[in-house]
Every structure is written in structure tokens, then in C-alpha cells.
Write a protein that binds this DNA or RNA. Structure first.
Lengths: 226, 226
DNA sequence: ACAAGGGTTAACGAAGGGTTAATAACAATT
DNA sequence: AATTGTTATTAACCCTTCGTTAACCCTTGT
């Protein structure tokens, strides 16, 4: 499975180099140039690993790391820094990072460490949530508020696809691909599966979390205004 | 919480130094002087982290690491070695290690990395229990509440697999793999074994601990949902 | 109004899973 | 060597759940 990582790095040249390289290795890499942008992206996406530069102008990497941990973000964090003294490393681990690499580093080693960190996470309880909807994929347990959400195998695939992209809209084309790969049956089947999924996620009287955007696709999010 | 680690290192002096140091940091450290002893200890104990020296006389660290992973051991492995070339590191990660430290290293950094690796694991010890179900695998003794649970060899494999992953769902694919490896019988043998296991674990009138999730697999947990 | 996209429903065959019993393989004992 | 008890595999049967389809309805934009 492809890894999705976030690179937080103020040096644009270095960032570009890293991003380009990771793409070749099937690692999708978002980029934030500073701590604030980082927090925003983490709120919107579900990353496997966060690559965090320590030396950044306003909010430094250690602070970002601590902040994330305090907010309950459990995503694996790999610190990237030119500082290689023991004190710096310990400070990094103490702030809650999972790994620490000293610049300049080899790209292949970075790739290897990213893969280890994302593997760890997928082995653990893979937890996603959108507003009231909390889903644990490894336990195959989904809840909306207090209520159990019961899903068929196809329902799980659709839910996972929608949650991973949330709050982005997912086209029906992508959903077909996610469930059936290249050979999909009569497209009406997807309609039925989406109907059943919607029944489970948005029960009578609840605020809708699953929205259809005509001609665009389906999206899972709190409000539809975006 | 105290960590339990296994140090696999043929240099007795270095091993002693490390063990003594780790003890000061509340890390209990077993020692194996070679690969064979290592495999035996891992079979008997449930370690948080395995510290693995690469340069060892008979069976080298990389081979030990690969062997462990092939046998399904998922314990975090930290490689310790004097080799610091990129190829060596990549070989380490490729063999299935989780981290890599180059000698000579700082003890404090070793401690920090051990703590990160043990934090990540979900707290499982050799004496496993899921609610009323208490199992000692080394003695092959299982009890549900006061009642003895009697199992066949296959039953033990299934139970161990399910308990190790609990509360995660284990697919039938994984169970087949756990019992028969790559060549499984071509019938519903697994169904029958699961049936018998279920009879033992959930006797008449008791709350079900073993659940089937259609299309997903089997889980051992108290309730089907939080 | 009408076409297109999407929602809803019921029905049926397919697949997944539970249960039972018979048989085969195996080990330990006599 | 024969007996006994345990375990593994197979097949047959049944029930439940899932996926797909077709038919029909509703909404929206032109």
C-alpha cells in the first residue's frame, strides 16, 4: 500500500528534492513550509509519517512535535536535522518523535525508515475519525456517537476510501476502482452499496456526514459548504 | 512501565556494559550470546525489543532477523553494528529491523530508542488474557473464569493467533497461514477447528468472546463493539 | 417537460459460515 | 500386534449474509 507522508521543511529546494525522490518510491508526499501549515494539513489528512525539520524560523520542529503530541496526534514523527549532538537527539525523542535522522542523510535510508514507520502504524490499530464517526479498521469496529455502525465487506472498502480522502470529494470513478479494480459490474451496484452505507452512517434524525455532490462524487465531512 | 528487552551480542564485555547500563534505566535485559540461544529465549518470552548485533560468529544478525520475521515474530528489532555504510543499513531494514544504530553509540540514545520502540507495541505479555479468558502458553494452560479450557494442538495455534491480535480481527487467510503455513488443506477444516475452539471458549450461557465478522474474519474480544 | 443523475426497494442467486457425523491418521498403552 | 483415545480431514447439509440486478421514484437543470 502507498504511504502518505507530510514533509515539514522551510528550505524549499531541499523539500522539492525530497518530494521528487519519494514519489519515485511510491510515497506520496505533502509539503508544509512551516509549523502552522503543518497543523492545518494534519487536521485535514491522515498521514502515515510526518517528516519534521527541526530548524524552522517561527515555530521550531521540537515545539511542533510537542504540540502535536499534546493534541493527541499519534502519527509517527521522524525528525530531520543538522544537529547531531546527543542532547539534540534526546530532546527530539523527549518531544515525542519516533526516529531521528541527521542531515545530510541518504535518501534510501530515509525511504527505509519511512517504510518501517508506516508499517508499524498499519499493524497497530488503524484509527480514523470524521466528526462523530470513529472507525477502527483493524478491529473492524465503527461507531457514530454511541451507535454501532454495521457494514458489509464492500461497505468497509467504501468507508475506508471515503475516510482516507475526507474532507475531499471522491468521484464515483474512484469508488468503482477501489471496490472492483478495473472490471466493475453494472454501475447501479455502486448506488446500492452507497445507499446502504449511508443508511448506517447517517441514521434518521442525525446530521448528515455523507454527502453527494451531483456530478462530482461523494464526500464524508461535517458540513457541505466547502 | 518496565521494558523487557533481549540483547543478542557475542562480545561478553560489551554485553555486560549494556546490560548494566540499561538496568539503571529500569530496562530489564536478557542476554543471548548467539543466534540459536536468541531463538530459544524469544520462544519462551515476550520481549518488547530485541537488540541484535549484526556481527556474530555463526548465525549473523541479518539472518537471525530474517528468520524471526519469517516465523511471524513481530517484536521490534534494533540492529547494533559497527558497519555504517548505506548498504548495511538498507540490508538491516530489508531483513525486517525497525531501527539501526552504529557503534560506538551513546547509551542515552540507545535508551531513548528502546523506549520509543517499546511504547509502540501494544502491551502483550506471555500470559495473555482477554476478559475472563486467561492463558499461559508456555504451560499450555487456559481457563475461562473457573473452567478449564481443553484444546487440541491446532486449537492452541488458533487461540494464540487470535489472542496475540486481540482485539483486532484476524482474517481466515491469516489463520490458515498460522496453522498450515503455505499449503493448507483444501476443505473446511478450518471451519471445524474454529467450531471446536468456539465450543471450548464460549460454553453454553456464557458471554461470547469469540466473534465472527462476516467477510472479515474472527476476533477474540469482550464485546463486538466498544 | 424531459433527460440525466441519483435514491430506494425487493428479489434472487452466490458466497460465507455453522454444524454434524463419518472416516482417516496418529500416538500411546497393553 | 491390537486396542484405545485423540486429533485432523472430509463431505454433506443448512442457514445467514452479501452482491447484483432490475424496476421505479425523485430531484435538478435546461
Amino acid at each position: 500500500m502507498k504511504s502518505l507522508v507530510l514533509l515539514v521543511e522551510d528550505d524549499i529546494d531541499l523539500a522539492t528534492t525530497i518530494i521528487d525522490y519519494l514519489q519515485l518510491e511510491d510515497i506520496i508526499c505533502d509539503h508544509a513550509a512551516n509549523g502552522a501549515a503543518c497543523l492545518q494539513l494534519i487536521y485535514e489528512n491522515q498521514y502515515d509519517v510526518i517528516l519534521l525539520d527541526v530548524n524552522m524560523p517561527r515555530m521550531d520542529g521540537l515545539t511542533v512535535c510537542k504540540t502535536l503530541r499534546e493534541q493527541g496526534v499519534e502519527t509517527a514523527i521522524l525528525m530531520l536535522t543538522a544537529r547531531d549532538t546527543l542532547e539534540d537527539k534526546l530532546a527530539g525523542f523527549h518531544a515525542g518523535s519516533d526516529d531521528y535522522m541527521v542531515k545530510p542523510f541518504e535518501m534510501l535510508e530515509l525511504v527505509a525508515r519511512i517504510q518501517v514507520l508506516s508499517k508499524r502504524r498499519s499493524g497497530q490499530s488503524m484509527l480514523l475519525n470524521v466528526d462523530e464517526l470513529k472507525v477502527n479498521f483493524s478491529e473492524k469496529a465503527a461507531k457514530r456517537a454511541q451507535r454501532d455502525v454495521l457494514l458489509s465487506p464492500t461497505g468497509w472498502i467504501l468507508l475506508e476510501t471515503l475516510m482516507r480522502k475526507s474532507p475531499q470529494v471522491v468521484s464515483r470513478r474512484q469508488l468503482l476502482q477501489a471496490v472492483w479494480g478495473d472490471e466493475s459490474p453494472d454501475s447501479n451496484s455502486l448506488k446500492v452499496h452507497l445507499f446502504k452505507l449511508r443508511q448506517q452512517i447517517d441514521a434518521a434524525g442525525e446530521t448528515k456526514l455523507m454527502h453527494t455532490i451531483v456530478g462530482q462524487g461523494v464526500v464524508l465531512r461535517k458540513k457541505i459548504d466547502g
